[in-house]
Simulated scan of single mutants.
Amino acid sequence: MSQRKIANQLVLTIGALFFAASACASSIQGSFETITGTGSVYRVIDGDTFIINVDETDTYNKFSEASQGEPRRLRYFNDNYQSIRVRLANVDTPESVHSDNSLNTEEGRRISEEVKALLEGNSTRISCFDWGYYGRAICSMTMPNGGDLGEWLIENGHSDYITRWGRHPHLDAEYQAAQD
């Protein structure tokens, strides 16, 4: 076999592997058309992760369809309550309930309690546009006063504006201004 044929086969093989890896990655993570709806904050897990009881059945069904049957995503759905676990976009508060207890901090517990007092049991508006690595919907959320929770966390020094996975698709300017 000539070196040219070997090189062509190698390029085709690498291309096929890249395509297969991309397909696998997008089946776990991947954006979808923004889903917006209302619900109540059933539980504040920590400062950046929540369980939302979605008000509208149509909205809940859109989440279900967007999950594409992916088990990593479906484990965060509860059809009995039309609830879904969401991760707040572009923020990362200190840990408070991590399974590795050594990662939990007093600051994380304080922020979690502050957010819980602010949100738990209250209505919110969510705008979700991606799936995170662990299968949670990546969303923005409003607070009872109508302000954006992520922006509030950044303004109050509870989190930086995290852009390592991309900028916020809807609130980039606001989050940048809150960081300054």
Results as ranks from 00 to 15, higher is better:
G15E: 11
G157H: 13
S99W: 15
Y60V: 00
S64G: 04
N8D: 04
R136G: 04
D172Y: 08
E107D: 14
N122H: 09
S96C: 07
A177W: 00
P144Y: 04
G39E: 05
Y81F: 09
T57Y: 07
S27L: 09
I154N: 08
R73C: 13
G47F: 13
E95W: 13
D180K: 13
N78E: 09
L88D: 04
I28H: 07
E65C: 00
I14A: 09
R4V: 14
N122R: 02
K5S: 03
Q176L: 10
T34H: 03
E120T: 07
C128H: 00
I84M: 08
H170C: 01
E107R: 15
D58N: 14
I126Y: 11
L17Y: 11
A178G: 01
A20G: 12
Q68F: 06
G30H: 09
M143S: 06
N53R: 00
A16T: 12
F18Q: 09
S140E: 09
D92K: 05
D148K: 03
I154V: 15
F18D: 04
Q29M: 10
I51Q: 03
D160E: 14
H170D: 00
W152G: 01
D130Y: 14
F19K: 07
Q176T: 11
Y175D: 05
E70G: 05
G37V: 09
Y133P: 03
Q68C: 07
G47Y: 14
Q9E: 12
Y133I: 08
G150S: 11
D79Q: 11
R4S: 10
S64E: 10
E114H: 04
L10Y: 10
L17S: 05
S83K: 09
L171G: 02
G146Q: 06
D48L: 11
E56K: 02
V115R: 05
G69A: 11
S112Y: 07
Q3S: 12
R72D: 10
I162A: 00
E114Y: 08
G30W: 11
N78A: 07
A21W: 14
I52M: 03
S159N: 00
Y133R: 15
E114N: 10
L118Q: 10
A89N: 06
G135W: 10
V41L: 02
S67G: 06
H98A: 15
